[in-house]
Design a protein around this nucleic acid. Structure first.
Lengths: 214, 214
DNA sequence: AAGGTACATGTCACTTAGTACATGTCCATC
DNA sequence: GATGGACATGTACTAAGTGACATGTACCTT
């Protein structure tokens, strides 16, 4: 084994959290949203797509299925029936207790899965031109996304959404979005300076693994 | 719909990328690693756990299964048989072309799935004490993880791992790790200042949704 | 020679996630 | 009154991820 990012440091370090019990956070995400008040599967689908989409995607089939499971478990119950077969769900006391337990006791699963980072391990396979174009696209995307969160934060700070506790939490979440995507944006820009973008400069030695001089 | 993080901005914005074709990045991750040279399923499992684990987890059952699929597809082939039934795989020309194609042409899946962020949306359900303790744990974890990446980066910059193109790419990936986890570390610390940590101060009004005065 | 550890590969069952398909209602506009 | 769009819920199928189980080898130490 040649070099590896961390060898023993990552493996035995603070990073490997043994998880005996599955995390299944979507379940608790739904419970958490329902803790704000009754909502239908359709409502929850929209909120997951619009509010949580970039950070925790979920499609409606999964959501309807989970709502059924949560109902079976007695953590939520049908609150009301609306116009087009609409069913609004309400969180039960057991459900509220369960979200609280999750938040306070369940260890956080710190697993990330960021394709941009995975790809960066293989940048050496790209031509300088390709890499430069790629990093520019990435930079643009991350900058724009950070901006979206920044706009929400500013609106909230202006008082557009009131000062309720839920809004306050959303503000905290948005702050994470800002910082995260800004960090990625800065990184993409920095990465371009490491591997020179101009095709006339020969770049760092051995930048192209093909056509080796042997 | 009361407030939502972005309403139309996120939904129609630059965030929703329609994906007709499944991304399956593990496949390309394996190809990318094999582009560095022949390796066995066991080797690749170790590299995924040690090097890529925090950013792209993969367990050996999935890896062996993918290696079989990649072999069927002609993107890799068995390079050699070793001591204990060990099979080292080698990337084929078609395989190399496929990683390159993926890197250059395939749109990046920017989906994140960060449980820490999901939880932050529900901070309003936690007592100030619980939240404070939680954020302190989070802060510690993120700081330590950033430190791990920072150490690797420093070792690389000292020249411990040479200056090959693969190492250079790992350095870029590590930089992302540093910035990402540092951003999360800073965020966790900042969040503590928003919701006051001391139980004697009454915190922001309406911090505890239970025992409302009604 | 026995025992332990790291090496090494695989299967099976189950859960989670995601796409495509299917159906039907309410409402506004043409 | 027809058409289309948003509302609303679901099923079926496929793919991806994970924990547990199962098996066996090479090597090192006692």
């Amino acid at each position: 084994m040649a070099m590896s990012l961390t060898e023993e440091s990552l493996a035995e370090g603070s990073l490997t959290e043994s998880k005996e019990v599955p995390p299944v956070s979507l379940r608790h995400g739904l419970l958490g949203l329902l803790a704000e008040g009754p909502a239908s599967g359709y409502d929850l689908t929209r909120r997951f797509q619009e509010t949580l989409g970039p950070v925790w995607p979920a499609q409606h089939p999964k959501i309807y299925a989970e709502l059924a499971r949560l109902t079976d478990a007695g953590l939520i119950e049908v609150d009301s029936h609306g116009p087009r077969g609409r069913k609004a769900y309400r969180i039960t006391d057991a459900g509220t207790a369960e979200v609280r337990r999750w938040l306070a006791e369940e260890p956080v699963d710190h697993t990330l899965r960021i394709e941009s980072l995975l790809r960066s391990v293989f940048f050496w396979l790209m031509s300088p031109d390709e890499l430069s174009a790629h990093l520019e696209r990435e930079h643009r995307f991350f900058t724009e996304t950070a901006e979206v969160y920044r706009r929400f934060a500013m609106a909230k700070d202006r008082g557009d959404y009131g000062t309720g506790p839920q809004t306050q939490s959303l503000r905290v979440a948005a702050e994470a979005g800002i910082r995260l995507f800004q960090a990625l944006s800065d990184w993409a820009e920095w990465a371009r300076t490491v591997s020179p973008p101009t095709p006339d400069s020969p770049a760092t030695p051995g930048d192209r693994p093909t056509d080796s001089s042997g």
